[in-house]
Write a protein that binds this DNA or RNA. Structure first.
Lengths: 210, 210
DNA sequence: TTGCCGCTGTTATATAATTCACAAAGTTAC
DNA sequence: GTAACTTTGTGAATTATATAACAGCGGCAA
């Protein structure tokens, strides 16, 4: 049985990697868990514990070797091949998300865009070609995509998700404010902006009384 | 000591409310915890446990009264007054977020926008006036905003956050891929898109092998 | 050398979140 | 009326997550 790893740990590993890249640019060679913890707003124990899953060793006197650790995390997260993703729904949000990933060296490449609007189909959006949603299955299978991003309106999200599954996509990042009903072997992460904002508003108003 | 409530519960309550609004539109008067659970992809026990914090009672035979419950959740989440928020950084993402909240009846109103770009300052963005960031403190204090949204590039997020705190903002929704270093009495929720996408990619590639 | 110091790696413990299990209560069937 | 059924509300158990505690190690000072 494959050792199961929690999504929180994966997310933090990804953050460690980002931090290590920055340290690398500053030509910092070694870093202690305390330093990493402080930069990331977690405890040093948590950093060390997260790194355990990598089987990577630091030195008690120098700390962790920045570049080696970065490489190790990358190997762990990305496996062998670079991850490819597609995005469905090219509104403001879709464009913003593509902008995130076209520029800097993120490990995931959003390499295809889909929409139903004839004004967008066929043209390039943020440097990537925009296809009609009907082409999703053929394009995704050809490029062997495994990740899909849904940035469509709520009422089409479920059907888009089902099309993605048809196209052999195994993980979905969903911005639409709906709960997708999908087979359990598909990994779904929801990014529900209005939900998040309401949560923040709740705690903000609670802090106000004190 | 005020009974502390977790952010997960708050977020789910907000989701229940959204579901109840939909049921209301379908003229459904009563609903069982099982039904709500199924629609939201959680267990019925969790629904009932979450509702415990409201002190709201359902009937063993009819379930929960949809409209009453919706009102109760709204009272709990919003308190008395309607929540007001501002947003800093009006790129694609900023516009997308404003679009979310201008339209339908979300409980939080994004009522002011800020940027540094002279081409945007003074104009209206998605129906809201865009101010220069230097006006943040005066505008926020005047309108008594308690929530801020950061959709600026990473390198300006920290300074924007500090300006928000100067303006008496108590909760921040942060889209920038940085860890904000702020006093502990400020509630911060991060929505880090690239982090989320990398997490999805990891699990997607894991599912691929099986 | 020897004794300390600070950090890592890891086990043990504590806290948080979820699920289980079941008593209490209203409905229906008869 | 009462037995059977269904669902709520909630203590208890379980699982997940984070923190604390500490052994082990390498370097440094004297």
């Amino acid at each position: 049985m494959m050792n199961v790893i929690s999504d929180k740990v994966v997310s933090r590993l990804s953050q460690y990697r980002r931090l290590l890249s920055q340290l690398n640019q500053q030509e910092i060679k070694h870093v202690f868990s305390h330093r990493m913890a402080e930069e990331m707003g977690v405890t040093a124990t948590q950093v060390r514990r997260d790194l355990m899953v990598l089987g990577f060793s630091g030195s008690p006197t120098k700390g962790y070797h920045v570049e080696d650790l970065r490489v190790k995390i990358t190997q762990f997260l990305d496996g062998h091949e670079r991850q490819l993703a597609c995005i469905c729904g090219i509104g403001n949000l879709g464009r913003a998300v593509m902008g995130y990933f076209s520029g800097r060296g993120v490990s995931v490449d959003v390499c295809a865009a889909f929409d139903v609007d004839p004004a967008k189909v066929g043209r390039a959006i943020v440097g990537r070609r925009c296809y009609h949603i009907d082409e999703l299955e053929s394009v995704c299978k050809e490029l062997k995509l495994s990740v899909g991003i849904i940035s469509t309106p709520a009422d089409t999200a479920q059907s888009v998700a089902e099309k993605m599954i048809q196209a052999d996509i195994k993980g979905i990042l969903n911005f639409a404010p709906v709960v997708l009903k999908l087979p359990s072997d598909i990994y779904v992460q929801n990014m529900d902006v209005s939900l998040a904002l309401e949560t923040v508003a709740f705690f903000a108003s609670q802090k106000r009384q004190s």
